[in-house]
């Protein structure tokens, strides 16, 4: 193992420890920005885990996230289960669902896969609504707990750290190597004897697991779950945009994407409450124009240039 790999892991550990202190120093407002940012860091990093090496753009994050949030709401409201039990079940269901979907669809590639995953969130939302309507009935799904922002923040931090750790191991393992080859050329990968389907399904399953877990953890913050809001397609797009802004080539890419994005979005929303969508559109244009390779790509380009200059 290269020493650089350990160095990166060390930096990550330092960052996690520093991040853990945020709730002790930040007031409610900054903490709630922290919760939002941490949620996107966990989601984007788990997205990069699969989509980074394979270049399969998945828009299914919202579907798994929704499953997690919805299960917590339904379990607590309809079956009076505890939050902790439901938060434990949710990611398992998310993972199983992702595995089933993976087996069925990861033979698709390119734009077909993108479109399928986009439709998936919508399909799951409708199936869930149908089940609730015909079998469960509803008095509204309430998630009433005593968890506060700092607790949710710490839980999300643990998830984000776990995703990173998993990604770190994967990128150094045989399966990570296999995924990179698949991303380079899938036909070549198959010819050199890689079981491409299995490799893809395993990683896709892990993104489903983590997205559902994040959805479950966020549910107490929303208090009231509506399928319509928890299965938001917008979430899937934001996760992809933030990951691409950071750069999907590195596991820590999303980190440098999510934080500026969250701050810019916040600033736009406050300065221009009536035109925020317009300004977000302008921001996207600027990002694509100035940072086509993401922040990571820009940083590496700079580093290379400095090395050449010296």
């Amino acid at each position: 193992m290269k020493p650089a790999g350990w160095g990166e892991l060390g930096w990550a550990a330092v960052l996690v420890v520093l991040a853990a202190f945020l709730p002790l120093v930040a007031n409610g407002y900054w903490l709630s920005i922290g919760v939002t940012a941490m949620m996107y860091i966990a989601l984007s990093t788990s997205w990069v885990l699969f989509s980074g090496p394979t270049h399969y753009i998945s828009l299914a994050t919202g579907a798994f996230f929704g499953v997690g949030g919805y299960l917590v709401g339904s379990g607590m409201s309809d079956y009076s289960q505890s939050f902790w039990l439901m938060a434990a079940i949710s990611p398992i269901v998310g993972a199983i669902l992702a595995a089933l979907i993976g087996f069925a669809t990861l033979r698709l590639s390119g734009v077909y896969f993108v479109i399928f995953t986009l439709g998936l969130a919508e399909m799951i939302r409708n199936v869930v609504s149908w089940v609730q309507n015909n079998f469960l009935g509803s008095r509204g799904l309430y998630v009433l707990t005593d968890l506060r922002d700092q607790h949710i923040y710490w839980m999300l931090l643990v998830v984000a750290a776990a995703v990173y750790l998993l990604g770190w191991f994967v990128s150094r393992s045989r399966i990570g190597f296999a995924l990179r080859i698949i991303g380079g050329d899938e036909t070549v990968a198959r010819h050199v004897g890689i079981n491409t389907a299995t490799a893809k399904v395993i990683l896709f399953t892990s993104t489903g697991f983590f997205a559902a877990l994040v959805g479950a953890i966020i549910a107490p913050r929303w208090s009231y779950i509506e399928p319509n809001q928890v299965f938001s397609p917008q979430l899937s797009f934001l996760v992809v945009i933030m990951a691409l802004l950071g750069g999907s080539g590195r596991l820590w890419g999303p980190l440098v994407g999510v934080i500026p994005f969250t701050i810019i979005w916040e600033w736009v929303g406050i300065q221009f409450p009536n035109q925020s969508i317009l300004f977000i559109g302008l921001c996207f244009l600027l990002i694509v124009y100035f940072l086509p390779q993401g922040v990571v790509g820009r940083l590496e380009e700079l580093r290379a240039r400095m090395r050449r200059a010296s």
Binding site: M39, R221, S276
Partner: peptide
């Protein structure tokens, strides 16, 4: 006034801004 973008998470964050900022 702020726009919560029909997103509960966004609303909670802005509510804290109203109170503290």
């Amino acid at each position: 006034e702020y726009d919560d973008k029909t997103n509960p998470g966004e609303h909670i964050k802005l509510a804290q801004r109203l109170a503290e900022q």
